[in-house]
């Protein structure tokens, strides 16, 4: 202290002190404001849970039970986590339109705030996978398309087809097309295993590998037509149909012209 006080008349003392004071004020303020933001978040979280509960009681409880404990026709939602809710409700699969074998992707019934509220409510019932917003952000930077393709072909293509177009499962169920899936939804599907889909835990497909897969799927969604119309990217069936109908059709048409007498 004594050594420090020797400089109190130094010509830089004033400015240094000023900078120090400003820094301290800033630091204090930021801590204080962080506290208030935290408080606000806690506040809004409880509010969101309440709102989510209301939505749940109105829209979901008839099948999933008043306390999300599940029923005869719908599974328990305790412990499924916010990720599952965000995926199912955010893609419009829940609430289901009818009692068909599988919930189809459609226009979401709730807006993003309501989905978040529902997710917060279900997450409050028991711990479960959270919405992977933060992890997914950097898929473009951290993912590897080629690596993702390799992982996709080993783990996903058997149901979702080589280009992510979806495919048939048994008894009328199907693996949906991935052409509209967002990065967050893809990540959520992998960790929650919606409907027929199995779960892919973080040790089996690591978070960074999941980003690879997401990056590959995004590339597949934007895959340009390198060789002409893609015809659904479902393999040789459409090719055969086009060969017969357009190819042979045109040739037969021309052959008819060839064999008609000119007038």
């Amino acid at each position: 202290m004594k050594r420090l006080s020797r400089y109190r008349r130094h010509r830089f003392a004033g400015p240094v002190l000023l900078v120090f004071a400003l820094f301290m004020i800033g630091a204090t303020f930021s801590v204080a404001s962080a506290n208030t933001r935290l408080a606000a978040r806690v506040m809004s979280r409880t509010a969101a849970i309440d709102e989510g509960r209301q939505i749940f009681l109105k829209g979901c409880s008839s099948c999933h039970g008043l306390n999300a404990e599940g029923g005869k026709i719908a599974p328990s939602l305790i412990g499924v986590g916010a990720a599952a809710v965000d995926f199912q409700v955010g893609t419009g699969r829940m609430p289901m339109a009818d009692m068909s074998v599988q919930a189809a992707r459609k226009k979401p019934a709730y807006n993003p705030d309501q989905v978040a509220a529902l997710a917060a409510y279900v997450a409050s019932l028991a711990p479960g996978p959270a919405i992977p917003d933060q992890q997914v952000v950097y898929y473009e930077r951290d993912g590897s398309t080629a690596q993702g393709g390799e992982l996709f072909r080993t783990n996903c293509a058997m149901c979702h087809n080589f280009a992510g177009q979806g495919g048939a499962l048994s008894r009328g169920k199907y693996a949906p097309s991935l052409m509209k899936a967002t990065p967050t939804q893809i990540y959520e599907a992998m960790i929650t295993g919606p409907q027929s889909m199995p779960k892919f835990g973080d040790k089996i497909i690591t978070p960074s590998e999941k980003l690879d897969i997401i990056k590959w799927i995004k590339a597949a969604q934007n895959e340009p037509s390198l060789g002409g119309a893609s015809m659904g990217r479902v393999g040789p069936v459409t090719e055969g149909l086009l060969g017969w109908i357009l190819g042979l059709g045109l040739l037969v048409g021309i052959a008819v012209w060839l064999a008609t007498k000119a007038r």
């Binding site: 393709g149 293509a157 149901c159 979702h160 080589f162 495919g167 390198l226 393999g235 069936v237 090719e239």
Partner: peptide, 21 residues
């Protein structure tokens, strides 16, 4: 005008992989 056998989408063969359809 019409893509046929887009092998770049199928990926290389290995017996452990398969595509739907």
């Amino acid at each position: 005008v019409a893509s046929i056998n887009p092998i770049w989408l199928y990926g290389p063969y290995t017996p452990g992989q398969i595509s739907a359809g």
